[in-house]
Simulated scan of single mutants.
Amino acid sequence: MSVTVVGARGFVGARLARRLAAEGAQPWTPAKGDPELLKRDLGVVYYCAGLTADYDRRPFDAVEAHASLVSEILRAGRFDRLIYCSSTRLYDGLPQAEVDEAASLVFDPADPRRVYDLSKALGENLTLARSGGRGVVARLSNVYDGAEGSPGFLSEWLIKAGRSRDLTLESSPHIRRDYIHLDDVVSALIAVAGGSGIYNLSAGALTSNAQIAEAFAAEGWRVGFTGAADPPPPPNASATRLAGLGVRARPVRDVVRSHLRGLGT
């Protein structure tokens, strides 16, 4: 069966395409705007296109990436399976401390910063309701990696650690997030292709900046923070469904310690 990775030049899509190629899948990785995307048989489609850091500055591009293009792929119908990459940020408006994939989502349509959530939610709806049962949604939590150029707060933290053992971070020790390493995301995406419905690609546990800083300190790094804010944590996204497929994200502090020890060799 053929495989297509949409967004293969992005953070997640690039690593996924490399893994699939290493396993002999020879994925097709169309460039943005390639007209063949709507003409050829795509096989299993991993839809990794999206905007994260600059969605607020480029709201119309965010809608195009999160909903419009996947709508066109679904309308063309030339695929066997479609795995749509979404985000656990969709839970941020919920009051519960713990949520799973069955939770109903809440959005404020008047909030301009909700264009990310609303466009992702539309992409999810199209994938689940307009794919003829061939769609799966993967909601990714905070993805990180230590390779140079990797985006995200923890990625940048790990990259800085390769340059200095004395770090000052523009954040607060009290901020809590769920983290999943990029390699674990790739393993999870491959696994959920055989599933159905929605899966949280998460560790299933919130970790504070202070707890991660302790892992750095144990390996000989000094970490300071410029802020002291202590906002309410986001809902903790359950990883139980993902574990049912045999995939479990490695604890973030274990990965951090391993990465730092590698820097010391």
Rank of each mutant, 00 (worst) to 15 (best):
P235S: 13
N200E: 12
A239C: 03
F107W: 07
D183W: 00
F11D: 13
A217K: 06
C48R: 02
V185S: 07
G197C: 09
D111E: 15
P112S: 08
R81D: 07
A191T: 09
H66R: 10
L245M: 09
Y46C: 05
R253C: 11
G246H: 13
G133S: 03
R253F: 04
R113I: 12
G220W: 00
P95C: 11
A76P: 06
L263Q: 05
F79S: 08
A21D: 15
E214L: 15
L158V: 05
A110S: 12
L126S: 09
A17D: 09
S208Q: 13
A161C: 04
A205P: 02
A161L: 09
D254I: 12
A138L: 13
L245H: 06
D145N: 07
V99T: 05
P232G: 15
Y144M: 11
P27H: 01
F79K: 08
A193P: 07
T127G: 04
A62L: 14
S150N: 06
G244C: 07
A129M: 14
D145W: 02
A237V: 05
R257G: 01
L158F: 00
V256C: 05
P109S: 13
G264H: 01
S187A: 15
R250C: 02
R81W: 01
P233H: 03
P234D: 13
S238N: 04
A229H: 01
V256L: 13
R89K: 11
Y84V: 12
I180V: 15
S171G: 09
L69P: 03
L82G: 04
N125H: 03
V256E: 06
D230A: 14
V186K: 03
S119V: 12
P112L: 12
E23T: 05
K160T: 03
F153V: 14
Y91G: 14
Q26E: 15
L16G: 07
H66W: 05
N125Q: 14
L94G: 02
A237P: 09
